Simulated scan of single mutants.
Amino acid sequence: MSPLNSGIPLKTEHSTKDRLYWNFLNMIPFLIGSIAIAKDSLKWVAVYIGIALFFFLIIEFRFVCTHCLYYIRGKGCVKCMMLPGVPKIFKARPGPHSPFERVVTVLGALPMFLFPVYWLIRDPLLLGAYIVSWALFFLTARRYECVRCINFECPMNCVPAGMKEEFEKKDGISENIEFPKKKFQAEGSSKCASLRVEHKFKDFLYWNFVTLTILFSAGLAIGISSTGWLLAYIFTVIFHFGILEQRFFCTYCLYFVRGEKCLRCMMNWGWPRHFKPIPCPPSKFDLAITSLGFIIIILFPLPWLLKTPFLLGAYLTSILIFLLTIWRYECARCIYFGCPFNRVPAEVRKEYEEKNRAE
């Protein structure tokens, strides 16, 4: 099997969905920090909000955004995924950042990140959630946006040098600047410019990190009340993902059908294949059994979560982040066409299947 012969498009503009998704993800750590501070004083919450706004609207705006192509190309207002509609109060400055600008940006960011720590260390649960939420934000941004962002001056930018040169030659006129080298074909596109024909270990690490944020909040809520029920929950999760899902859902997946003795997908890496692959779409019965298993897994911890509102909020937010992220960035390029959530266009599926039959 080989990936489709197409490159990945650079994101030359952001949609409303991009802005909603990334501002939602960005608001989570600020909300957690505000909750920790609010337990002591609402006045300090106002100070925290002021520090954050000063950083984003003054320091970052002046010393970072003015060098960004999204800022430079905007007319009147900013049109990026993080600060949509904000007036351009500073003059655009094409070119690299100066050492002074980098230092000021770092010094301006530190108070924003560190300010709530004094209150967070009083509540280890909130501190952990704060760290995890920021880690999730930066990991997701680097994984899905930094590989196609035209802000080449950003230190997190991961666009290959060849793509940058091609974009600069065309002066950013093209909406889809493509780079056909194979090693970039399965990275970074939510518009299915390429299919992800195989997963890597880093995919497994990322998606299991996201999944663990869900399971940890549920397990913690149960474990506070009962060790016995926690063990029952752990057994149910292992049985579902290791046996039930593998038999009634994974066996139909093209990632599973391949000849490895162990699974090599983004959710199950190194797990033994207990069942033979079935190279056809899953039946309604298979999907019903799989759905029932997921419903049980999701609803099982609710009686305990309802006793702890913070853990309930963390649980529901983690599920929402998981679903939004996988829907935006994976379902549009996944080769498991039998999955009911698959969003790969029909013409791309057809082309992929024809190439595989030819090979």
Rank of each mutant, 00 (worst) to 15 (best):
L136E: 13
N176I: 06
A129I: 10
E353Q: 14
R93N: 15
F209L: 09
M267R: 05
K182S: 12
K191H: 05
Q185S: 15
L53H: 00
N342V: 13
S283K: 10
N356Q: 10
P180C: 00
H274F: 15
Q185I: 14
V348S: 14
T308G: 01
K182I: 13
C80T: 03
P160E: 08
F248C: 02
G219D: 06
D286L: 04
D123Y: 10
Q246C: 06
L302E: 02
Y70F: 08
F294P: 02
L263P: 00
L205T: 13
I72H: 08
N26D: 12
N23P: 14
K169V: 08
G223I: 07
T290R: 08
Y329D: 10
H97P: 10
P303A: 05
L136M: 09
R93P: 04
E330D: 10
W134Q: 08
R19E: 10
G74F: 09
P124L: 04
V64G: 07
V64Q: 07
G313M: 08
S225W: 06
K39E: 12
C334N: 13
E60P: 00
L120G: 03
I335T: 07
E13G: 07
L292H: 02
K11G: 07
F90S: 06
W269S: 06
A161M: 04
W229S: 03
K261V: 08
R343F: 10
S41Y: 00
Y233G: 03
P309S: 07
K164Y: 07
M81I: 01
G219N: 04
Y252W: 01
Q185R: 15
A346Q: 13
L120N: 02
L306V: 10
F56M: 06
Y118I: 13
L139A: 08
T325I: 09
G270E: 03
V45G: 01
K75Q: 12
N157Y: 03
R357G: 06
H14T: 07
S225N: 09
L299D: 06
K17Y: 07
R73D: 15
R148M: 01
F300L: 10
P282F: 02
P301E: 00
V132P: 00
A332V: 15
F138E: 04
F241R: 04
A135C: 13
L299C: 13
F137E: 01
M1S: 08
P116A: 03
I243D: 00
I214V: 12
D171R: 15
V257G: 03
E245L: 11
M81C: 06
F300E: 05
Y352E: 05
Y233T: 07
P160T: 01
K183H: 08
D123N: 15
P3E: 10
K170R: 14
R357P: 00
P111I: 03
P9S: 12
R73E: 15
D40A: 10
A161Q: 14
M27L: 15
H14L: 02
G7P: 02
F113M: 07
N356G: 11
L31N: 02
K169M: 07
C149Y: 05
W134F: 14
K284R: 13
N157P: 04
